[in-house]
Computed example of a mutant assay.
Amino acid sequence: MARPPHARDKVLQAYVALLLEGERGATMDAVAAQAGVSKGGLLYHFPSKDALAEAVLERFATVTADDLRAMRVAPEGAAKHFVRTSWQVDHELDPIYRAIVRLAQAGHAGALAAVDDLHRSWLAEIVAEVGDEAVARTIMLIGDGLYHQASMPGTWSRDTFAESLPDLLTLVDRLCGR
């Protein structure tokens, strides 16, 4: 008898959640327990940790493709879109991005390639708009700094960035010569 389709998603979400706590703790037993499924139920959908990692990479590819599409069509332009959305850690991209980073830190070649590809793609979109790679890299560093600060515990960063975001976006315009 086939398992309910949502069980696969629950298992994948559990694996991502465990990766966020640390790659070593994301064992098959821990994933099954976190998802509330039997080990057999887990193995039905994902016969190995490699299969789980591949599913996370597929989800990452889908979410990042959506993000890049949104960046391309953003009325404000790719650079301002990147900075404006960088500090939003409640977006669906954030947990899957952090899970892929954890896998990359653990030496997973596919995850490392996926992170590199995403960063290259973000840079390419910004360069296409601003025409200067050094300016595009500076804009990415602004966004990366916002992301880092927003992911810190406490509310200081989020409150501060919410207030100062218009000034940062004005700075992005200045960097772009607008």
Score class of each variant (00 low, 15 high):
Trp122Met: 15
Val63Asp: 14
Leu18Trp: 04
Arg120Gln: 15
Asp67Gly: 13
Tyr15Ala: 15
Arg84Asp: 10
Asp29Cys: 00
Arg72Leu: 05
Val56Gly: 12
Gln149Pro: 00
Arg174Gln: 13
Leu42Thr: 08
Ala128His: 09
Leu118Lys: 07
Pro166Trp: 00
Val89Trp: 12
Asp117Trp: 03
His45Ala: 06
Pro166Ala: 01
Pro4Glu: 07
Phe46Gln: 08
Val89Ala: 13
Asp132Tyr: 08
Val115Pro: 07
Gly177Thr: 01
Ala111Ser: 15
His81Leu: 11
Ile142Asn: 00
Arg84Phe: 05
Gly25Leu: 01
Thr85His: 14
Ala109Val: 14
Ala33Ser: 04
Leu112Phe: 10
Ala111Cys: 12
Arg174Ile: 02
Ala99Lys: 09
Ala113Ser: 09
Val83Lys: 06
Gly110Gln: 12
Ser86Val: 04
Lys39Val: 10
Glu21Lys: 05
Val31Glu: 01
Val56Leu: 15
Trp87Met: 11
Glu76Gly: 05
Leu68Phe: 02
Gly41Glu: 10
Gly36Phe: 01
Thr64Leu: 07
Val89Leu: 14
Gln149Glu: 03
Asp67Trp: 15
Tyr15Lys: 03
Ala113Pro: 03
Met71Gly: 07
Leu168His: 04
Ala78Val: 07
Gly40Ser: 15
Arg8Met: 13
Gly22Cys: 00
Lys10Met: 14
Val16Asn: 06
Met1Tyr: 14
Ser151Ala: 12
Ala70Lys: 14
Ile100Trp: 03
Pro4Asp: 07
Ala74Leu: 11
Phe161Gln: 11
Asp29Met: 07
Val172Arg: 02
Val31Leu: 00
Ala53Trp: 00
Glu133Arg: 15
Gly107Asn: 04
Ala113His: 03
Glu133Asp: 09
Phe46Lys: 04
Ala30Lys: 00
